[in-house]
């Protein structure tokens, strides 16, 4: 028997609810804070999050959100709410913010400076260290979705000179000190292999950093991402629930008796 879940919209919130015996659990997505960085997409253990038209929804040409939660697959573990640096997702039990997988026990506290996003006007946690490179030969040029999507506004196109405007160089410039390494530009880019992100370190506290859940998440986050197509192919190889080898073997009944 499956438990029934459904979605509903309220102002700028999208709520996916599931009714259980003890009450209701809900995932609340705040559309004013969400940027479409797809960090929740990488972390999700059930592949329940689908990528939407990020570039178009940031420009407000569609009503479709940048991220949709597929409630057929979602198990309401709240890992997406834990990792979101913008605080756009929240897990609620009976209308109160709650945690199922608790920080300090099985998940560490994420540490880092709080930075102000100029795009949305909210604060964000910066807990990644890494590197970002843009391949200007593979960039199609002229679409500039990455510049409009970026929450920190650290990407910029060069301004054409007034005397010879046709001699503008199509190069996207990055300010690496500002960058959050969230990956919003990468997942909205229509070209293949144009943007590369390699994260080297995730800053976190000591408490609860030795659990298996966190090590699983950390390996997912620290994988270098070259394009979202590549990432999708990599994910297809491993079925949801992990590889077969990682499952613990059950002792056979004959040996135990």
């Amino acid at each position: 028997m499956t438990r029934q879940a459904f979605t509903k919209e309220k102002d700028h919130f999208i709520i996916t609810e599931r009714q259980e015996v003890r009450g209701t659990t809900a995932l609340v997505l705040d559309l004013t804070k969400c940027v479409g960085c797809n960090l929740c997409w990488t972390v999700c253990p059930r592949y329940a999050i689908e990528r939407g038209p990020i570039g178009a929804s940031v420009r407000k040409r569609t009503t479709a959100p940048p991220i949709r939660i597929n409630y057929h697959k979602c198990v309401f573990c709240g890992l997406c709410a834990f990792i979101c640096p913008f605080g756009a997702l929240e897990l609620q039990i009976n209308g109160k913010p709650a945690e199922k997988v608790k920080r300090g026990l099985s998940l560490p506290f994420l540490e880092g400076p709080e930075v102000l996003c100029k795009k949305t006007g909210n604060t964000a946690l910066k807990f990644f260290e890494g590197d970002i490179t843009i391949d200007n030969e593979k960039c199609p040029g002229g679409c500039s979705t990455c510049i409009e999507v970026c929450p920190m506004q650290c990407l910029s196109l060069p301004i054409a000179p007034k005397e010879k405007p046709w001699q503008k160089e199509p190069k996207v410039h990055v300010e690496k000190e500002k960058c959050l390494f969230c990956g919003a530009c990468l997942f909205s880019c229509p070209a293949k292999d144009a943007i590369k992100i390699t994260r080297t370190k995730v800053k976190h506290g000591k408490e609860g950093s030795e659990s298996k859940i966190w090590k699983n998440i950390e390996t997912k986050l620290l994988k270098p991402i070259y394009s979202r197509y590549w990432f999708y192919e990599e994910r297809v190889k491993t079925a949801p629930g992990g590889e077969i080898k990682s499952a613990p073997k059950r002792k056979s009944l004959k040996q135990s008796s």
């Binding site: 939407g52 038209p53 990020i54 178009a56 420009r59 569609t62 949709r68 409630y71 057929h72």
Partner: peptide, 24 residues
């Protein structure tokens, strides 16, 4: 779901949306 076609369209006649989950 890149949404490039609807940004590019000069007549604004293309719209892109999710298919609602109830239909699956």
């Amino acid at each position: 779901g890149d949404g490039v076609c609807m940004i590019v369209c000069p007549q604004d006649c293309i719209s892109l949306e999710f298919i609602p989950l109830e239909e699956y």
